[in-house]
Amino acid sequence: QINVQRPMCDSPEAEEAALVAQDYLNAQHKHGYKYALNRIEDIKIVTMPDGNSTFVLEIDLLETDCHVLDPTPVANCTVRPKILTAVEGDCDVVLKRVGGVLTVTAFKCKTEESREDICVGCFNLLPLNDTAALEFVNASLITLNNITANVSYTLLEVGRVSSQVVSGGPQYSAEFVIVEANCTDSVCLPLSDPLAERGFCTALGLHSQPTVACKMFNILMPVVDANNTAVPALPPAVHVHTGSLRHHKLTSLHDPYLVGFLSAESAESAEVVPVVPAVVDA
């Protein structure tokens, strides 16, 4: 009485399920970047006698340059090319179709970064806790705060940091998220107001000479340079990264009731971020 189908990976039902999975996975994140569907690896549809179906999907996702706080639809985001160290997510996703509506009920992801295209003279991704890179981010924030009138920002999260060897020393490239802050003396605290202004910034330059541009989620701020008077150093309220994480990874979520649908890859699961408590649809 149970019907098992293996439709083509590029079939409409596979594409529909994969896009639901992509949006669901992106909605799980509070840090890092949105991921875009790259390829549907496999699909199986189990249809029960009551007509409800379970989709077991294996998909390949690629990191985009849109931060998860950026309201830009993932379809309009740019996938990072290999040369900029692409980050790939492989996910097993279980979805249920009840009454025609597809919902994700479980997933498991592992994340890997491309290493094969690293070249001499190119930007190389640095660990998010790299001291020199974080100093560069802090210098970028000071540069930014020097040119913003009546408003100060503090660091919410560092998204990416990379460096390149040039004649004047290491050149850094950084991406970070800022939030409006209340600053007194040398201490800045993020505004708790949910309407506090947030932005996604990119900085480029030598260690103490960053050029910064910020996108305040649809408002592009002017590019500035580092010729302003320095303000007191701001304590970085950086999203904490432990161990040797090099990038933001896809969250791993596991529904024990559907464990049979998810492939057993315990060794690979060790690479994912510690499991977030599952909040599964009833």
């Binding site: 439709p7 790259n38 390829r39 690629l62 996938v79």
Partner: peptide, 28 residues
């Protein structure tokens, strides 16, 4: 008992699209 021959004459090359994995949207 009679048997039914279901053999169909093949007149051209068979091009079977791979079922899975699907197309690569960006790069492999």
């Amino acid at each position: 008992p009679a048997t039914l021959d279901l053999t169909v004459a093949q007149t051209g090359p068979v091009l079977l699209a791979p079922v899975c994995p699907g197309r690569v949207r960006f790069f492999k």
